[in-house]
Amino acid sequence: MTPFFWWTMHFLLAGRVPWRRLLPSAILTGVFFAGLGVFSEFYFSSTIISDSRTYGTIGAVFSIMTWFVAIGAVIILGAVAGATWEDRKAKVA
């Protein structure tokens, strides 16, 4: 996912931020995404089963909603963490 997010940041920012500055954010987003994948494997199966048992079919939608919110968190946390790292590096240099 790292190359996709690297390109996404550069493309959506219309090339105004150099590739080099975006790299930490892309790497961290990729790492967080991988972490979300691992977390999903342990968390979502049991959650979907228990939610659908408690709430019916809409329970599975709750789980998908949680997954989408987690994707949003991963994207923002990755971008912010990388940008903060780059800013700190620029201040030190």
Partner: peptide
């Protein structure tokens, strides 16, 4: 501290919820 300040500046919780809802 810089990380937390940056998260506050972009309204992290609001953005995450809006993004998740938008995706759904």
């Amino acid at each position: 501290q810089s990380f937390v300040r940056q998260l506050k500046a972009i309204d992290f919780s609001d953005q995450v919820m809006l993004f998740g809802a938008g995706l759904l």
